[in-house]
Write a protein that binds this DNA or RNA. Structure first.
Lengths: 162, 162
DNA sequence: TGGAAATGTTTCGTGTAGAAACTTTTCCCC
DNA sequence: GGGGAAAAGTTTCTACACGAAACATTTCCA
């Protein structure tokens, strides 16, 4: 946990981007233009929080907001080319480091790690009454075509929607 | 990571204590009365940040500050009985849930999990130039006397002191 | 057509975070 | 002994994240 925390701060000071901002960018990159509330749902933050983050991203010209013509309530948020570049430059939320490291491990160990993490997530959820979305990204290693996809036991994507 | 994040917010809303505050309290409980800067070092936050957290903890009367008589620059921070109680009431930084869960697992699986986590910490440190304290708490399971201490491979406590 | 619902935003308060400036106190060297 | 240097804690400042509540606009629908 402290590792993640420290990484997050390092990110902010070195790459001028914070974790939530990076998460937004990444989500916009992956899932195309999104409405504000759709984005908020995807990253599990409140609407108002998301607006703030988008404000900062827009200031840096990494995203643009575009009002829909058909339904003028709706605002579509796009990632800009500059935003894409920023995404490339910044280490992607620890994932890159992890992905590289994991890819280098023997398949058997990857499996063991996946199972261990699954156990832990299980435990964290143990006493929960209301379901919370915990891990819903796809497989940890996804953009590593050289891997034969050993069929990591997918952490069951609990899409217990709100 | 999201699990930790969500837990942190749950903590704040349900137990009126935030993660950094809980971390402070825990540290004060474990390592006796501490000076402000010593505490700041232990929890790896800046001095000014720590002062703010201590202010809030003092407002809730969970800690008290006491100026040393011998060296009047020094302020010793003590945890109060109320603070101890708060510590007991709040789920201890996920640790309790984890500890309980881990204790229930077969020894072999505990070992596997420990090794997996060790691998991950390794990866997170991989590209680091400057050493950062990552995991320095003791064994994950420590207050579980019913466990015969199966000799979990301790994640090497990197006390690469600043 | 009028009210309900949806959508995005603003406002407000709290908390974390660190840099820089500042106060008080102690230490040490000349 | 006096005059800085150093140490310790605090204050001030700025930025960011976070969510609740109020708000404006727009659309939908009965």
């Amino acid at each position: 946990m402290r590792a993640v925390d420290i990484h997050s701060r390092k990110l902010a000071s070195e790459f001028k981007i914070t974790s939530p901002q990076l998460l937004c960018l990444q989500t916009l990159h992956d899932d195309g233009p999104l409405t504000t509330s759709a984005l908020a749902k995807l990253i599990h933050l409140s609407n108002s929080t998301t607006v703030g983050i988008l404000d900062r991203l827009e200031m840096k010209e990494w995203v643009i907001r575009e009002r829909s013509q058909r339904d003028r309530r709706i605002v579509l948020v796009h990632i800009t080319p500059e935003g894409e570049q920023a995404l490339k430059d910044a280490p992607s939320l620890l994932q890159e480091r992890l992905a590289t490291g994991l890819a280098a491990l023997p398949e058997k160990e990857q499996l063991a790690i996946a199972q261990a993490l699954e156990r832990i997530v299980e435990m964290l959820e143990m006493t929960r009454t209301e379901a919370a979305p915990l891990l819903e990204s796809g497989p940890i290693i996804e953009t590593q075509p050289e891997l034969p996809d050993p069929g990591l036991p997918q952490v069951a994507a609990r899409n217990t929607e709100d």
